[in-house]
Design a protein around this nucleic acid. Structure first.
Lengths: 144, 144
DNA sequence: GTTGACTCTATAGTCACTTCAGGGTGTGTA
DNA sequence: TACACACCCTGAAGTGACTATAGAGTCAAC
C-alpha cells in the first residue's frame, strides 16, 4: 500500500510517517518503479504500535527502547516494565503539577470575581505579588 | 543592576532574560558604556510578572495579551478574566487527558504484572492491539 | 598585566511534528 | 495526444520556550 493509505489507517499525516522513517522508528519500505513508498502488513502493525505509544504520550526515545525490547520479548519483559513504570510516573508527576497550578489559578481568579472595576485588577496584583516557586527538578518528565 | 543579578532575583537564566527581550516581553534596557544591559526596578517587576505567568504555564502569547491589558487596567478587567478563564480551561483539559492516559497505562501495566515470562509480553500485546483513539480537537490547549 | 568572573552577539540544538516550495508520477477524461 | 488532477517525492524552514555553544569583549582585583 502507498503512504496515503497507510496514513489513513494509522490516523496520522503522510508527513508524520516520513518523519518516523527519518527518525528510525519505522523501517524504510521498498519503492515502486516510480519511487513511491510501498508498505507491507508489518509496517502497518509497527506504525499502529508507534501511534498507540504516542497516544499514551510516550517520547520517541521511550518508543525506541520499547521497540528494541520487543525484538527480544522474554529477555526484555522486566525492562519493558521499567520503561512503563517510569512513563506512568512521568504522567503522575505532570498531573500533580497541573493540579497545583489549577489551585493557584483558581485562587487568583477569585480576586477579580469579587471586586470588578478595581484598579489595579486583583488578578494583575496577584500576578505581580506571587512568590516565584523554585521548580524542584526540571527533568522529572518529558511531558510539557 | 546587571543581567546576572536580575536573573538571580527572577530565578531564571541570563539567556532566558535576553530571550524575553528578543520576544518583546521585556523592554530593552539602557546600556552601560561597556554595552552591558542596565536594568531598573520596573524591569524587575515586569520580569517577576512574566515569570509568575510562566510558572502558571501560560504561553508567551497569553502573557503578551495580559501585559497589553495591564497597561489599561480598568478597561481590560473583563478581558483579563477571559484570558484567565481560557487558561484555566487549558489546564483542566490537560489534566483530564492525562488522567485518561494514566488509566490506560495502569490497565496495560496490569497485563505484565500477572503473567511474567509470557511471550509475547502482555504490555507489548496491548500496545499492538489498542485501538487508536482519534484525538477530538488538537488545539484545545497549548500545554504539552 | 594578568587572572577570572561576568557580559556581549550570533548561531544551532531540543521535541515531535507541520508547512512550504518546487518538482515528479499515475490515472482518467476530452 | 493533451491535459487536469490527485497523489507522491525531497529538502528546508517554522513552531514554542527555551538551552547550549563559540568566540569575543568588559571590568575589578591582585
Amino acid at each position: 500500500m502507498k503512504i496515503g493509505e497507510l496514513a489513513k489507517i494509522a490516523q496520522c499525516s503522510v508527513e508524520t510517517i516520513r518523519f518516523y522513517e527519518k527518525e528510525g522508528l519505522l523501517a524504510a519500505p521498498a519503492r515502486t518503479a516510480g519511487n513511491f513508498r510501498e508498505y507491507s502488513a508489518e509496517h502497518v502493525e509497527r506504525l499502529r504500535f508507534i501511534r498507540n505509544c504516542r497516544a499514551l504520550d510516550m517520547s520517541h526515545e521511550e518508543i525506541h527502547t520499547l521497540l528494541r525490547l520487543a525484538d527480544q520479548p522474554i529477555e526484555g519483559c522486566a525492562a519493558i516494565n521499567t520503561v512503563f513504570d517510569q512513563h506512568i510516573q512521568h504522567v503522575e508527576v505532570r498531573i500533580k503539577e497541573l493540579e497545583h497550578l489549577k489551585q493557584q489559578l483558581d485562587t487568583l481568579r477569585q480576586q477579580c470575581q469579587t471586586d470588578l472595576g478595581l484598579d489595579p485588577c486583583g488578578i494583575l496584583q496577584g500576578l505581580a505579588d506571587m512568590e516565584i516557586e523554585p521548580k524542584s527538578d526540571k527533568k522529572h518528565t518529558h511531558l510539557g
